[in-house]
């Protein structure tokens, strides 16, 4: 399986997490991977003590470029 970079932003902090993940992974799967990685201490830049479903309201951005990259970010409805 190809390695993917997930850029995770949570409460004003941000970090990259590298993990094997298919390009067509579902949003729910990506959110779950993020939550487990952070809680497991694999993303040291972010606090481990996050609540269950911490990323339920986050958006998963996908890009059409060649890179296997996802961005998990808060919603940005305002302008």
């Amino acid at each position: 399986m190809k390695s993917a970079t997930i850029n995770i932003t949570y409460q004003g902090l941000s970090a990259n997490y590298l993990t094997p993940l298919p390009k067509n992974a579902s949003d729910a799967m990506i959110r779950r991977v993020c939550e487990e990685a952070i809680r497991g201490g694999e993303v040291p830049e972010l606090p481990r003590a996050i609540p269950a479903n911490a990323f339920a309201a986050h958006v998963v951005d996908r890009f059409q470029g060649a890179k296997n990259q996802f961005i998990v970010r808060p919603q940005v409805p305002f302008g």
Binding site: R73, P77, F78
Partner: peptide, 24 residues
């Protein structure tokens, strides 16, 4: 371009990569 309600994040995206977030 958009901003999070709590002021902790902003994003600039070209349309092909843009996901619309509706205000909660």
């Amino acid at each position: 371009a958009g901003l999070a309600a709590d002021g902790t994040f902003g994003a600039v995206r070209w349309d092909r990569d843009f996901v619309i977030d509706h205000e909660p």
